[in-house]
C-alpha cells in the first residue's frame, strides 16, 4: 500500500478571536489518496478553508502531523515552504486571485518564473495551460478584460502550469453563474481523470461536490465521514 498523498494526524488549529481561543480543527485525522478528487463539505466554521490552507502550506498547524506529497510541512521553514508550494501545490481561489497588472499569459507564467525553465519554455508551458482551459487567444487580456468564468479558468491554468501534484480549490465556483461553474468543474474533473491530479475542493454546493469522486464531511473541526460518490455520475460527466 503506497503512502497517501495527504496524511493528517491529530491536526489542531486554533485562533484568538476577541480574547477567546477558537478551536477550528480539533485533532483531525485524515488520509487522501493520490490521483483522487475530493470535495470538502461542512457547515460554516467547520474548518474547511483552514484545513485547505494547512494542506497548501499557507498556514501552519498548532499541533499534529501533516504530510503532503511526501513532505512533513511542520519541518519546513518559511522559505522552504514557499519553494515546496511552488513545486507541489496549485491553488484555485473563490475570488480568482489573479494579479491585475499582469496579462493572462503573464499570470500563468508567474509560478513558472520560480522554476529553472527558460523564458521560451515558460511561455510555451503557459500557452499550453491556457489552451487546456480553453483560453487560447486570450493570452494578452488583463483580468479586468475577462469574464468571471474566464478569470477562474486562467487561475486554473496558473495552478496547473507548473504541473503540481495537488490542486487545492477553495469554493472555485462560488462567484460564478451556473454555466461558468459547470465549465470550471468539468475542467477540474478532466484534470483529475486525464492528468491524475489529486484535487481537494472546498464547496457548499452539493451539485459541485457531485463532480468529485469522494465527499469529505467536516463538522466542528473533526472528520464526519467520507462518502464515495456514485461512480455512474462521475463516469457520465467524463
Amino acid at each position: 500500500m503506497s503512502q497517501p498523498m495527504i496524511r493528517a494526524r491529530k491536526l489542531t488549529k486554533s485562533y484568538l478571536r476577541g480574547g477567546e481561543t477558537l478551536t477550528v480543527l480539533d485533532g483531525l485525522d485524515l488520509d487522501m489518496d493520490e490521483g483522487r478528487f475530493y470535495a470538502l463539505m461542512g457547515p460554516s466554521g467547520s474548518g474547511k478553508t483552514t484545513l485547505l490552507n494547512l494542506i497548501g502550506g499557507l498556514d501552519q498547524a498548532d499541533e499534529g502531523d501533516l504530510v503532503v506529497a511526501g513532505a512533513d510541512l511542520a519541518a519546513l521553514d518559511s522559505s522552504a515552504l514557499a519553494r515546496w508550494r511552488a513545486a507541489n501545490v496549485g491553488f484555485v481561489f473563490q475570488g480568482f486571485n489573479l494579479i491585475p497588472v499582469l496579462t493572462a499569459q503573464e499570470n500563468v507564467e508567474l509560478p513558472l518564473s520560480l522554476s529553472p525553465l527558460s523564458r521560451k519554455e515558460r511561455r510555451e508551458h503557459a500557452r499550453y495551460a491556457l489552451k487546456l482551459v480553453g483560453l487560447d487567444g486570450r493570452e494578452d487580456h488583463r483580468p479586468g478584460q475577462l469574464s468571471g468564468g474566464q478569470e477562474q479558468r486562467v487561475a486554473i491554468a496558473r495552478a496547473i502550469a507548473s504541473d503540481p501534484k495537488v490542486l487545492l480549490a477553495d469554493e472555485p465556483t462560488g462567484d460564478l453563474d451556473r454555466k461558468s461553474a459547470d465549465q470550471v468543474l468539468e475542467l477540474l474533473l478532466r484534470l483529475n481523470v486525464e492528468f491524475k491530479k489529486t484535487i481537494l475542493m472546498v464547496t457548499h454546493d452539493p451539485h459541485a461536490a457531485a463532480y468529485a469522486g469522494f465527499t469529505v464531511h467536516l463538522d466542528k473541526g473533526q472528520l464526519g465521514c467520507i462518502e464515495t460518490n456514485p461512480p455512474r455520475a462521475v463516469a457520465a460527466r467524463v
Binding site: G56, L58, S78, R83, R85, L98, I99, P100
Partner: peptide
C-alpha cells in the same frame, strides 16, 4: 497587500 499574498501563495518567498 492582496497581491503580495497571491505571490506568496504561488511560491514566492518572503524575501
Amino acid at each position: 497587500l492582496h497581491d503580495a499574498g497571491i505571490l506568496k501563495a504561488v511560491g514566492f518567498t518572503d524575501g
